[in-house]
Design a protein around this nucleic acid. Sequence first.
RNA 1: GUCCCCGUAGCUCAGAUGGAUAGAGCGACUGCCUCCUAAGCAGUAGGCCCCAGGUUCGAGUCCUGGCGGGGACGCCA
Length: 561
Amino acid sequence: MTSMFAERISDALREAAAELGAAVPSVRLDRPRDTSHGDLASNIALTLAKRLGRPPREIANDLRDRLNGLEGVERIEVAGPGFLNFFVEAAVVGGTLHTILASRDDYGRSDEGAGRRIMVEFVSANPTGPLHLGHGRQAALGDAIAALLEWSGWQVHREFYFNDAGAQIARLAESVWARYQQLLGHDTPVAENGYQGEYVSEIAAAFRDTVGGVHEGDHGPEATEAMRTFAVGMLRDEQKRDLAAFRVRFDEYYPETRLYSEGRVDDTIRALDETGLTYQEGGAAWLRTSRFGDQKDRVMVKSDGSPTYFLPDVAYHMGKWERGFHEVVNVQGADHHSTVDRVRAGLQALGRPRGYPEYLLHQMVTVVRGGEEVRFSKRAGSYTTLAELVSEVGADVARYFFLMRRPEAHLTFDLDLALDQSDRNPVYKVQYAHARLCSLLELARTQFGDAAEAVASADTSLLGTAAEREVINQLAEFPAFLARATSARAPHLICDYLEKTAGLVNSWYQTGHPTRDPSARALVADPALRAARLALAGAARIVLHNGLAVLGLTAPERMER
RNA sequence: GUCCCCGUAGCUCAGAUGGAUAGAGCGACUGCCUCCUAAGCAGUAGGCCCCAGGUUCGAGUCCUGGCGGGGACGCCA
């Protein structure tokens, strides 16, 4: 049924409660797990029992009597300890289908965000190596959250921040330098704390192919700088390619060096000094971040005169605010959680609000292959890359795997399951249900010539079986699930929803199997009933399609084995 | 030592603001192709929801204290 209809019921409930002497701000209606408990249920009588000093069942009976004759409601039952169960007329239930069919690709969208701007910053990998599976989880998560926000009416900016200078990059340049000299026949081992991955040699080879041997034996600053620029450019290109293959795009890539070249870091030091919250100790400049909930004060400028990472971080986020992003979601690995309080404290010192920016910290990814854990270490260069994974299982499966778990739960990525048993993958179940509905609708066109108009004007009150009602009620909940997944920053709720929906659709579909009940099939001879069932099929297809779209997955019209 | 996350079926995990008989997938077992696609469906087995207190009509969910696992606590990034 439409949400408007559910709202009417909850309004009526609220009025009735007020008449009993208990004003409540809003009444929540649930869809009962058990279909014998009706289409909608309320526990309001239970929650009011204490306030009214009366047994909940008595209150429930009272409320029911006041609600009798509500339009579209077939009957109301009082059940269990005092639940009110609403049984809705078939016409109202079926009416949902017309809402969905009319909204099509927009079904589920809302204007909650009212066009306000919001930034989602995610991945933000440093260009020191190819993206690994941890980045993959973050790419899938950030992109899905961004899409959810767009569906809720926000204007979303996807941003990727990267450190293109600093010690790690210097280390990368040194490693490339060593490999480059090796290619020219010198015995120059890569430093122990350097990057050992094979990709470093590839970069060195490409560099040699580009410039030849002009830097042979040359360890001067120009040589290192040339290799740094070359390596960063090459790795960034590779990361962009990997992300493109994963179907993740960014509106902006923001380099750390820009914070320095635009003077933002110096500005931030000045601004912080002006607050009077900074002090000198041991030759370093400190900020009293402990004033704002950080566990201890932090160094902003080291005794050697160089800034700690904290400073550009604050400068970067001040920049976000100044660019007009007063709502920001930072998607980061949980290993960054110690920086959260610090950065927020710095921003608070500069007058930004307490909770700015919002952080979504996700737990790490453990990779399991052949029953044992695959340790991935950037240093050793022995980790599984996102590109490898995507080329083996495809972007759809990879994205779904990364999204199906709550962000704050540890993710065990079983490569054997993803690679070898992909047939049993939940994503295929959802996509298959979609493809099946597509071919059902196609058959209706070719065999019966059923036009879209016939379906659009179908009498959906003909859909009265338990399986049909259950599917329709499930479809009706899609917008609510989207809203919840958005506000909770929890795309996995959509995975759960899609699997449940696909299951109900498949179940409904199978009841019409020739060996079971041919009269329950969709393509029956009776044109009116056929149109009604095709309306259900069409609406279900739309919901599956839209749900997959929000998660960044394709919705194939057919599945080939 | 302090902080964050997790602990639910054999395995991997869902269970929003406390509500009716705790769910799914995988694995095990039993059925179902007379074809709108069986990558599916129906069913069976499998649970002291880590432990102990507390809050209340009611706790997997909230509070306190433990136990176990992971992560973070730099003038690293």
